[in-house]
Amino acid sequence: MNASVKRHQLILQQLQAYKHVEVPELCEALHVSAVTVRKDLKLLEEKGLLFRTHGGASLESPYIKDRPVNEKEQLAVGEKADIATVAAQLIQAQESVIIASGTTMLALARAIPTQLPLTVITSALNVGLELLKHPEIEVLQLGGYLRHSSSSVTGPHAEQVLAEIACSKLFLGVDGIDLDFGLTTTNIAEARLNQQMMRTAQQTIVLADSSKFGKRGFGRICGLEQVAHIITDQGIAPADSRKIKELGISLTIV
C-alpha cells in the first residue's frame, strides 16, 4: 500500500469518527504539508467520498436548503429540548428579550417558566402562540411578510419596530455555523432581520444543536466574533469547541 492510499484511509477514518476534519489537524496526524492534505481532499471529493469545506472537509454537504418547520421539528428533538432548558435559565424576571424563529426557539418558549414576568419580542408565530399561555409574559409580535416554511415574518416592517426599541438578550437560532464564514440561514430576508435583532439586543446567544456546525446557508447573518454565547450539545467536534473558546465566546455544552 503506497503512502497516498494510507493517507486517504486515515482521512476517511477521521471523518467517520468526527464528521468534520480540519487541514492543520490532518497535517499533524499525517506528518505532511497543508498542500499535500488539500490535494488529498480534492481527490477524495472528486471520488465522491467527502465534501471540502473552508479549511477542512466534511462527510456531509456543508450547503443546506430550506425545509418546512414541521420537518425540522422532528430533528434532534432531545438535544433542542436540553439546549432550551439551559437557555431559559439565562432569562431573568422583568427582562425584555428577543426570541428569533426556528424549532429550537419554539423549544425555548416551551421551557420558559410559566410565572416569569418579562417581555418577549419575536418574529415567530409559533413562539408567540406558545407564550400566550403565560399570563405574566407580554409578547410583542413582529409583523411583515410571512414565511410559510418557518412560520415567521421578515421584511422592513419588523426591522423598523426593532430599530426603535432596546432589549437585553437575543436568542438566535441558525441553520449553519461555519467557524470561518460565520452564522447563516437559508433565507436572505431572515438574515437581514436577524442582523437588526442583533443591533437591538445587548448580547446575542446562539442556540444550535451540533448538526449545524460546518454548515452554510444562503444568507450570512454575521461573523462568529459578534456572538457572546453559544449553547449546543455534546456532538460538537472538539476542534470546533476549541476554536470557539479561543475567540473568547462563552460555550455551554449540554
Rank of each mutant, 00 (worst) to 15 (best):
A107K: 14
T154A: 13
V153A: 05
S152F: 03
L116E: 11
V97T: 07
D180C: 10
C167M: 05
V120Y: 03
N126Y: 01
I137A: 09
T184R: 10
A158R: 02
K133M: 10
G128C: 05
G144D: 08
P156Q: 02
S152V: 04
I91T: 12
A93Y: 08
K133W: 03
I188R: 10
A163Q: 11
V161M: 15
T114F: 01
G173F: 01
I99C: 06
S152G: 13
L140W: 14
C167F: 04
V120P: 08
E136F: 12
A87C: 10
T104F: 03
R147F: 00
I177Q: 04
E95P: 11
K169Q: 12
L162W: 12
I121Y: 14
Q160H: 12
Q160W: 12
S101N: 15
A189Y: 12
L132G: 11
L131E: 08
V97C: 10
T154I: 15
V86Y: 14
T185K: 14
L172Y: 01
Q94L: 09
D175P: 00
D180R: 12
A166Y: 11
I121C: 13
V174I: 12
A158T: 01
Y145R: 12
D175T: 00
G128F: 10
S101G: 14
L142A: 07
S150F: 00
L142N: 01
I165G: 06
T119R: 15
Q89F: 01
V127N: 09
A166V: 07
G155E: 03
V174L: 00
H157W: 02
V139H: 03
A166I: 06
D178P: 05
H148Y: 14
T186K: 02
S96V: 11
Q89V: 01
I188Y: 14
S123D: 13
E164R: 13
D180E: 13
Q141Y: 08
L129M: 10
L106D: 00
F181I: 07
T104M: 05
D178I: 09
A124P: 00
G176R: 00
V97W: 08
N126D: 14
P156A: 00
T184L: 08
I99H: 08
I91F: 06
N187E: 10
L170I: 02
L140M: 13
S168D: 08
L183A: 03
N187W: 08
L172P: 04
F171C: 06
T103P: 02
G176N: 08
N187G: 06
L125H: 06
G143H: 07
L90E: 11
I188D: 12
Y145T: 15
L132V: 06
E159G: 02
T103A: 02
I137K: 04
I91S: 06
H148Q: 14
T103R: 14
I188A: 13
I177D: 09
T122A: 03
A158G: 11
Q94M: 04
F181Y: 13
L172A: 02
A100H: 13
L162I: 04
A163D: 02
E164D: 13
E130H: 10
C167K: 00
S151P: 00
S150L: 01
L125A: 07
